[in-house]
Design a protein around this nucleic acid. Structure first.
Lengths: 211, 211
DNA sequence: AAAGAATCTTGACAGCGATAAGATTAAGCC
DNA sequence: GGCTTAATCTTATCGCTGTCAAGATTCTTT
């Protein structure tokens, strides 16, 4: 009669299966990665039949989409909480560091969020919105650093470009192409890259608006 | 008796199956992407039984690895041919443009080269070598732009960082997160990002070696 | 020409996503 | 309360996948 949480888990009707499936899927995702995450394994972990999930999610893709959307929500959240008193460069560095740390903390989730698995044109609207919101946080941060209006063209390119750099670095590290040196850790690694990039652009970008 | 090219393709012994499988796989890769590339489809395209490939490749992963290695070879090749008389910034821009264009031209191959599919610790040595060689070309280019020794720490970080930026941009575009605007095309898109990044780093990186 | 190795096919197995049809429980209605 | 209906979960099954084992065919070597 307790209408919310059902305790009789030995047979049949579980009750609020969807969230249980989602959290089991999140666990498994971290363990085996996005490609090898099977609905059967998720169902088994919850203790339910292999096809039970289909009454709560249209298919595997929808379950993964919701996981990814949760990821973008979380990413947006960590990007939002920043030190308002910080200097401009501290703000920029902090953002990059936070983003990179998120990716490193949740490599499998990050792969799912930015991988090919969900990158179809009929992508879930909720996922698309969550992603845009996360990118919005990023633009907000860049706008503060540049002290320019949020939707100016400079802010957009700069946000896009700094996103590309950080995402690229995270992606290369997560996929084992690069590995941050043991000494100094990720922090120093990311910052050194930023410095290298700064130097390079100083040398190689002194003609402003060609073309 | 012609020992190299066998023409009797109606039955049995095909002869030099491996390259045929590879090129069929390359075609299919471009059509369906790395995740959905099945050995059965490859075999069928060549006109051979589903398990024939196992006499030339240990498993699916090895076939994909060879495809990816070919990709890195090609990438290294296009990066190597650059205009020696160009200015520093033209050289840098040219490299970025070439790299990005390669990724755009072969999105599925690029996904395979940098995706999770082959990113295991027991990765094929040949693939690892091919990847290192391609990165070597990149470092070479950056060394020229910076006019510094090839294995200096500045060149390494700058190469790594510019790679991260370009890879990140390519990755975001290929996975549908960003899309280059119709007007101007990829070229302008990439360059605008570089400018945005340059501006941002000017503003946000004025303290050199903080910790 | 015979023997052995290389190459390709047939047959089979387990795991996957997904659908259809049936069993069980909950909720709504009188 | 009891009946009806909808929601939930299970069982059975399909087609597809990678992979292995065993047999058939062809090439190579002697």
């Amino acid at each position: 009669m307790a209408q919310s949480a059902k305790n009789k888990r030995d047979t049949y009707h579980v009750g609020n299966l969807a969230p249980q499936l989602l959290s089991a899927a999140a666990e498994l995702l971290a363990e085996v990665g996005p490609a090898k995450l099977s609905l059967r394994a998720v169902s088994e972990r919850v203790g339910v039949s292999s096809t039970a999930a289909y009454h709560h999610f249209a298919n595997r893709t929808e379950l993964l989409s919701q996981l990814a959307a949760q990821g973008f929500d979380e990413l947006g959240r960590v990007l939002r909480q920043r030190d308002d008193g910080a200097s401009l460069n501290a703000k920029l560095r902090g953002g990059v560091r936070t983003y990179f740390a998120f990716a490193r903390r949740n490599p499998a989730l990050y792969q799912l969020m930015f991988g090919a698995e969900l990158a179809t044109e009929d992508m879930s609207p909720a996922l698309r919105i969550a992603r845009e919101a996360a990118f919005g946080e990023l633009k907000q941060l860049i706008a503060e650093v540049l002290a320019k209006p949020l939707d100016s063209s400079e802010v957009r390119s700069a946000a896009l470009a700094s996103w590309s750099y950080t995402h690229g670095l995270a992606s290369l590290v997560i996929h084992g192409v690069l590995q941050p040196p043991a000494e100094g850790g990720d922090e120093a690694f990311v910052m050194k890259g930023l410095q290298g990039l700064s130097l390079l652009l100083q040398v190689g970008m002194n003609s402003a608006s060609e073309r």
